[in-house]
Amino acid sequence: MSDAAAKGRPTVQGIDTSGPCPVEYRFAHARNGNRHLTVVFANIFAPDDYGWATGVFNSLRSNILWIRDLFDGQNTYYLCKGMDFSVERSVIGLISKVMTSLGLSPGDVTLWGSSKGGSAALYFGLRYGFRNIVASVPQLRIGTFVRDVYPQVGRHMLGETMPDDNVGVLDAVLPDLLTSGVNPEANIYMVSSPQDEQYSTQVEPFLGLLQRYRNFNFVFSESPFITGHGKVTQRNTPPLLGIAYLLVEGIAPRLGLTRHGYEEPDADKSGIEAYLKSTSVVQESFAAPVVTLPEARAVLPPEAVRFAGYAPGAVRVSIWQNGKYLASAPVGADGGWVWDRGSQWNTGEHMVRLFAVDPNGYQSERTDVRFTVARYVTVRT
């Protein structure tokens, strides 16, 4: 076991060797004593074969267990290699030990994953009675998918020749669980999209079985920003995290069947732009302040920098440098204003930005003043 550097959240990295296959994991302790465990399964091409490990869960209050899907150098859907399901037994052994060590029950656990990880979350959640399952764009006919789409993974899981009988066995593992109605109290949250090329074969045929579950929640995302399977979860990360934050607090939302994602990236913005322009704090009719001192591009000694000018209609002139507020200079009845910093300026080039503010709080356009401060400058009198 060793400490692993995490993006913003300390983790412990280890290997559980109590089962037939060594299982690599990362673990982060809960925040503020939260009594929940989130188990994260990896999608294909996840960095280091750990899913959702890029810092997205940094603020999630639960304990987090990331499980690596790398067994004999290849992915396994956390199930099998060469149809030997010792991988599955080792993975559930790890989850059970962590859960028990925390003094938690399956009702205190959320299984989480997308794509391959979503399939694993659904499988382990249903078969082993975990309360919460979050599965984004899972594959429910695993055998066919790995044979046709990822044959390297398919040969590792199904055997070198990927025989049809073995494909059929893996194709059936999830549909058989759904047909049996196992774990009927599970809270299931699934995300998919018609823009996902896998939807019609891997998700849609099984929606009827999923809808038998009392708290099955299906987020059907129809966003123009989704261009394929890999973009569905990316587009839906905010709502997925919203679900996660509720689950770790013991709140299981009931969303039912929902559709969303009707963005309009090319929408006509002329109406709102016209409104904003007419009510903006920056008013085109309100003149920018005029600066008479210092003169443009003046070279001045550190102690002789003085600002002056006029801003008719304004009550003050606001003065900024490099995004930092310096001061406000009151404007007299005649429109004139002056400001002296009261301390020496650093040598070098300076750019100061000013704007006027009227009695209603409206701001003018900006005026930029550029000057240079040098130590040995003769000031003419």
Rank of each mutant, 00 (worst) to 15 (best):
D3H: 14
D3S: 13
A4T: 07
A5P: 03
K7N: 09
V12T: 10
G14S: 04
T17Y: 06
G19Y: 13
R26V: 02
H29C: 00
H36G: 01
L37K: 11
L37C: 09
V39K: 13
V40W: 15
V40R: 09
T54F: 14
V56W: 05
R68M: 05
R68W: 05
L70F: 15
L70S: 12
D72E: 15
D72W: 13
Q74A: 12
N75H: 14
N75L: 15
T76N: 08
L79S: 06
C80R: 08
K81Y: 12
K81G: 07
V87T: 05
R89G: 01
V91N: 04
S101Q: 10
L102N: 03
G103Q: 07
S105L: 10
V109I: 09
V109P: 02
G113I: 08
S114C: 13
F124M: 02
F124S: 00
Y128P: 07
Y128R: 03
G129N: 11
R131D: 03
R131G: 00
A135L: 06
A135W: 09
I142P: 09
V146P: 09
P151L: 06
G154P: 11
G159E: 05
M162G: 12
P163L: 02
D164E: 15
D164A: 12
L174C: 01
S180Q: 15
G181C: 08
V182H: 05
M190I: 04
D196M: 07
Q202N: 08
V203N: 07
E204N: 09
P205I: 05
L207G: 05
L209S: 11
L209I: 07
Q211I: 00
R214A: 14
F218S: 01
H229I: 08
Q234I: 08
Q234C: 00
R235M: 02
A244F: 10
A244M: 14
Y245R: 12
V248Q: 15
A252G: 00
A252L: 00
R254K: 14
R259T: 07
E264Q: 15
P265V: 05
D268Y: 04
S280N: 12
A287N: 12
P289M: 01
V290R: 15
E295T: 10
A296E: 11
P301A: 07
E303C: 03
E303N: 13
V305P: 01
R306G: 03
Y310K: 07
A311D: 07
G313K: 05
I319V: 13
W320H: 15
Q321D: 07
K324C: 00
S328Y: 09
D334S: 09
G336S: 13
V338E: 15
S343G: 02
T347Q: 15
A356K: 03
P359I: 06
E365G: 14
R366M: 10
F371W: 07
Y376M: 04
V377M: 06
